[in-house]
Each structure stands twice: as C-alpha cells, then as structure tokens.
Amino acid sequence: MQKNLKFYVTLFLQTFKISAFTFGGGYVIVSLMKKQFVDKLGWISEKEMLDFTAIAQSSPGAIAVNASILVGYKTGGWPGAIIAILGTILPPLVLLTAISYVYTWFITVDAIRYILQGMQAGVAAVICDVVCGLSSSVWKESRGVALITAVLSFILVAFLSVNVILIVLVCIAAGIFIYGRERKIHGTAP
C-alpha cells in the first residue's frame, strides 16, 4: 500500500464521508465501510472486514471509532489509524457542538424528522444489500458449519437478544476446536 499524501487524504475523506452518513448505530458504519473499502477501493478483503467488525464490537468504545481504527491501521499503520479516527469523530463533534447551542429549536423542526424517516428506509436497504453480498460469500465458502453458524447467530441475536460477546466467545472456541481438528487430521488447512 502506497502511503503518500494522496493516500492519507483519501482515507480522511472516506472516513469523514462515511461517518457523516452513519445514522443508526455501529452496524451501519460497518456496512458503509464494507461498500467503500472492500467493494469500491479494494483496500481490505471481505474477510478482514468481518474480523474487524467482530473485534470492533467486542472491544470497549463506540463500534464506529473502533472499526475506523482497525481499517486505518491496516491500510496506513499508526498514522492511518489516527487519520481515520479524526475523519470519524469530526462530523459528530462539529455537528453536536453546533446543535448544543440551538437544540431546543432543532428537535422541533418537522423537515429534519421527515428526511430522517426517509433516510432510515434507505439505511435499512444499504444494510440489507451488504447482508446479501456477505451471505452469498458464506454460502459459497461454507460446507454446512458456516451456514449454520450464520443462521444461528442471526436467530439468537434478533429474536432471543443473546449477548453478542457470548456468541463471539463460543464461535472462537468452536472454530479452534473444529478447524484445528481438521488441520490435525488432514495435515493442512482444508
């Protein structure tokens, strides 16, 4: 990865842009990052993005900040991580500081609520699009185990509100056990 000025400017602008449009929680920013950094720019692989998502949400702090640190570090080392953090926190920092002075007005403006209600449908579509892409990769790569894991974790989180950290720990243990044993039997990674 070339680390000239142009690279850092692109990294900053991308994280800034993504952060400015992240309405509705950590998984939205992860989906947008996947679209930009994996699909469009090809800076990181889909597998890495999934690893980063798991790490970001199992570590302390906001998912958005954690994910941008991981993406920034992977693509540009320590300076990249710092640039990515700046790009991610500047939009909310500037916006919320400004709003703190006019907030009683802000929460009563109808137009903002109308735009947000529309945007929420758009955000849902973006995440669904990302899920479709990821599901087809799981489908292609997997022999059963991965597919069952994906469906099971969806059901546990969506309908039974199981703590995601618990799921992460169980999957790590299962991965080491299942794939480690295969490695022993076959001698190499399957």
Binding site: G24, G25, V30, Q120, V123, A124, A150, S153, I167, Y179
Partner: peptide, 26 residues
Amino acid sequence: DDALRGLRPAVVGMIASAALSMIESS
C-alpha cells in the same frame, strides 16, 4: 485463523439482525 474462521459467519448473522431491526423501526 481457526478462531476467525469460526467467528466470521456469526458476524454476518449479527449484521443481518441489525438489518432486521432497522427495517422494523422504519
């Protein structure tokens, strides 16, 4: 590598559940 291979599909499931709750609230 083994641990992450076990974990990745679960992350897809988690993102899918986030998609579902976004759809619901919208």
